[in-house]
Amino acid sequence: MSAAASTFAQKAQSHRFYDSTIGKKAVMAVTGAILFGFVVVHMLGNLQVYFGPEKINAYGELLHSSPGLLWTARLILLTSVVLHIVAALQLAALNKKARPVGYVRKKNIASTYASRTMLVSGPIIFFFLVYHLLHFTTGQAHPNFRAGDVYHNVIAGFQQPAASIAYIVAMILLVNHLHHGVWSMFQSLGLNHPRYMPWLRRFSAAAAILIGVGNISIPVSVLAGLLQ
């Protein structure tokens, strides 16, 4: 066996998969899918605020009724967030190194705004996530937090215009992120076919917008006085 072939064989035993750009993208796709699933369920949960305090507070209690299950879910989500970000940062560093000298003129002729700004929307969504947890989960960033009273926390929280604006901006960025991210994870995993890719892109855009509209409606309704 030649020297080159044997290095290949040794490498094959260890970390070649994650070493490769395609492997890292696969990790981003799988963790992205988990986080997308969470965002969908989370929005459906949020919308129960429109059915009144009893309904959403009961939902909150239900989620907390089984600590084992709750923490398993939280652990999966936290792991996904960490892996998604680590892979993204590693890839971003590689990509930056891949073009040390830029162009004087460069035109984008096919890519969407959303696809080019994943590295902007992503980090801002992360910082929003930290704020969001301190705001509605642990309460440190909330002016008048009552543990267990989800309805009160949402209404009181969003009655502060600054907080509402932060949520609305973050959700617009999430729409942007998902607009590219949802169909992109299928491509990264090789789950693509010319027959359904155009539909997947439409699904991606529609899902992103629905999630955005659903979530943004809540602070808007509170500010407009429809929810109190």
């Binding site: 490498k11 890292k24 096919a110």
Partner: peptide, 25 residues
Amino acid sequence: VLKMVAAANRELFGSCTNIGECEAV
């Protein structure tokens, strides 16, 4: 595929972000 992808990574080509500028040109 394993060897070609590893070779491209060694040559310092970046990763695909599925944005589609390549197919357009």
